[in-house]
Nucleic acid binder design. Structure first.
Lengths: 226, 226
DNA sequence: CGCAGTCTTGAGCCGTCTCAATCCATGTGG
DNA sequence: CCACATGGATTGAGACGGCTCAAGACTGCG
């Protein structure tokens, strides 16, 4: 896929996008704050293996979700921004741990309630379907990134994808560590760091600090992504 | 991917999948054969970019789905066996091409019909949700395979995964070529071939022919998968 | 000021990709 | 029945790039 799909979460109220979250957003408008919200950095919204009790919507902050593999490694499956949902795509128990990267405010609804309402609210049932389709497509995009051979391609794809989700401005505020990025891209922290340094010395990006990146040559980045 | 911060619990890679396709299967019991069914090997059920018109259920044979990347490479996103559904997880247009590996018999239903029925049939709506959740989880598993560093780990994971889907018997009939496997695992055909040869000389598998593999030491394979 | 965590950078090794040749199974035509 | 063509699969040699090991720099915080 030449380009990654547009992010499915809509920062603005809904638009006639095929997989539109309007219905879910409407349901969440009256949702209460999640227990323990706001979450502190490093705090878990839920953990791998936990039974799925509630569905979250992020109001502010950023969340990373990851799986611990049997060999002790960690695979980051995604980063979640305001407007995004968590817990929808799970089965009976969570396959990932969701951890706050920053201070996170979130709402929560009981998933059993949601499922119950879906039995009478067809628009909601449809929205749940569409939300899962969106999660699937994001996962496919992630797989496509992981399938890219080169470190440069993966990092470029990550930067462009995340920048798009942040609204497309030139300056990006990265809420995650290099280790998070590395575990997301299937690389080591060293390679990620080296690649970013290389991109900077090539004049493609400017690293104002470790967490702030400015895209200088977006076109060249897109070309690198291949 | 290095040491973890706080391994709070034993990692649990594989969780029993909720395959509650009963409702969908019921709907498909009266479904007509797909147009052009049976498909010949190499024939496409649908192509990347096509508008999504119908949902397929495979009755016999095997299907590979893949995306063509802008750099000309091909990324296989999955293999589909009898009982599997195609077209459920797509948005308005297909992100992948679905191609018959063998002679394939399939049924088809108009997706608009399905969506329409879902507005009055809540069990169906719920089944559609669950099916998409299943597709998402398979995609996550695929991403986990792609994130594994070594060729041996990826091939072992593929063999075990596919063997499980075939029922768990010791002998496997692989409907796909080495190139298909390579594109699925993000490796080259050479590395896949070399790895399989290595596994055979190690006594872990026996390649009766290129398309027939027998698992001799499943435990060692599972250990390799890590 | 020192500590701990994060990030950067260097040197060398190892595994996968690339390029290339060969083998094998199948099918076709003489 | 065999020679040949074809496409898939295997195998080898070498190059390249990311991982490992290791050291040092930077940041935030006590």
């Amino acid at each position: 896929m030449t380009a990654l799909r547009k992010p499915t979460f809509a920062p603005m109220p809904c638009e006639p996008r095929p997989s539109c979250d309007c219905e879910l957003s409407r349901v969440f408008q009256t949702a209460p704050a999640a227990p323990h919200s706001p979450f502190s950095p490093g705090q878990a919204l839920f953990r791998q293996g936990d039974p799925v009790r509630q569905v979250f919507r992020i109001q502010s902050g950023a969340v990373v979700s990851y799986s611990l593999l049997s060999d002790g490694r960690r695979q980051v499956t995604g980063f979640h921004l305001p407007g995004g949902f968590l817990g929808l795509e799970a089965g009976v128990s969570h396959a990932t741990t969701a951890e706050a990267l920053t201070t996170v405010e979130a709402q929560a609804l009981d998933r059993s309630d949601l499922a119950l309402r879906a039995t009478t609210d067809n628009a909601l049932a449809r929205a749940l379907w569409q939300a899962s389709v969106g999660a699937f497509q994001r996962s496919e995009d992630h797989a496509l990134i992981l399938a890219r051979q080169g470190a440069t391609e993966r990092v470029a794809a990550f930067l462009l994808d995340f920048n798009e989700r942040l609204g497309g401005g030139d300056v990006m505020d990265l809420p995650m560590t290099r280790q998070d990025i590395a575990d997301y891209l299937g690389l080591t922290i060293h390679t990620v760091s080296r690649t970013l340094s290389q991109l900077q010395s090539d004049g493609v990006i400017e690293a104002k600090s470790t967490r702030h990146v400015r895209l200088l040559r977006r076109t060249r980045l897109e070309w690198m992504r291949a």
